[in-house]
Design a protein around this nucleic acid. Structure first.
Lengths: 191, 191
DNA sequence: TTTGCGATAGACAGACCTGTCTGTTAGTTT
DNA sequence: AAACTAACAGACAGGTCTGTCTATCGCAAA
């Protein structure tokens, strides 16, 4: 065999990403990951000694991807931080239109992990980073209360994302964007 | 034994409610429900032939409870539908302060159920009902676009709820409420 | 007293889970 | 050629899961 266009580790991680996102980490057995990535069991356990290590690597991959999409969408909206805060929601719309969209990987994973676990902590950390990034944008946008605005906007993001586990109705990100626009306008004095 | 202050079915359902909400249905074995509700396995399987039947009953119980809290919070905010739309968010704050708060039972459960399943369908139905109820309130509040406003407000609700799986920070429902107020005011012409 | 019924306790089957271990194959270096 | 390395295939142990089945207990009616 050895169809190593990709090295084993990446093949494993890509497969895990796809399966974990579709069914949740707990819903996918290690054997399935092995079978679908065309890798030996020993190889998987060499790169990821426990299944949780694979889950954590999966979350890091999601973090990079989602954060990247947020930044790209914000930057695409122009130079004005206020426009960037609103443009951010385009990432939600794009995600929603993507095949196999299934909501927020972090929230979905956190829902099935115990409170003290590493997986849980990683999720909390991710949300904290997103919140801080939005707050920074809000500060540069001149919001009177940047932290409040950031919390409101991430609420809309999380709501839109988590609703995605149910259906991929495009009306959801659309409503999120209009709400975001209204909140940004209200919070940043001086159009 | 026979400590039937409650009949067996309710004892089972109450126990399942507590355990399912804390760990997710997939994270709780039938044996644990049996042990903690003090019931024989045959009795459980008489009332709920498949585990999924128990999960569905759990979701119905959650639906009643959450919908009731929303209605109560809305009614407590006064007679004006605009105030009721905002008061609704007090249910979020109360939920967040409750011991063992763990986010939205529906989203958490949907995250670990397959797309075509009965459990998934029940969840979608629940969100649809809440959306319709909020839209009706928005209509009576005189919103120019009641469906849009309803979608925006339920986004905030869902966002606040789903964030609860990570932490129970009271700043979250607080921000949701102020955002809700801003959106309601903007959408309903004529204070 | 005897018969019947609902609930109990718990063994069991069969599937699936994680993680370990043995042995083999292929490619590279010495 | 010989040794080393990395990946392969897959058996295996020990545990958990759902759902079924047997056998027992307590109580009420006949």
């Amino acid at each position: 065999m050895k169809q190593s266009a990709q090295p084993a580790r990446e093949r494993i991680l890509d497969t895990a990403f796809r399966l974990f996102y579709a069914h949740g980490p707990r819903g996918v057995g290690v054997d399935t990951v092995i079978a679908q990535s065309g890798v030996a069991k020993a190889t998987l356990y060499k790169h990821f000694p426990r299944k949780d290590d694979l889950v954590l690597a999966y979350l890091d991959k999601v973090d990079q991807a989602w954060f990247g999409q947020l930044r790209t969408a914000a930057r695409a909206a122009g130079a004005d931080p206020r426009d960037q805060l609103v443009g951010m929601f385009d990432a939600l719309g794009s995600a929603c239109r993507r095949e196999g969209y299934h909501g927020c990987a972090f929230i979905n994973t956190a829902a099935e992990s115990e409170a003290g676990s590493e997986v849980h902590a990683r999720t909390v950390e991710h949300k904290r980073l997103v919140l801080a990034w939005v707050a920074d944008l809000a500060r540069r946008a001149g919001a009177t209360d940047p932290d409040l605005l950031a919390r409101q906007l991430t609420l809309l993001l999380d709501g839109g994302l988590s609703a995605g586990v149910l259906d991929a109705d495009p009306a959801t990100p659309a409503a999120a964007k209009t709400a975001g626009r209204a909140l940004v306008d209200a919070a940043c004095p001086g159009g």
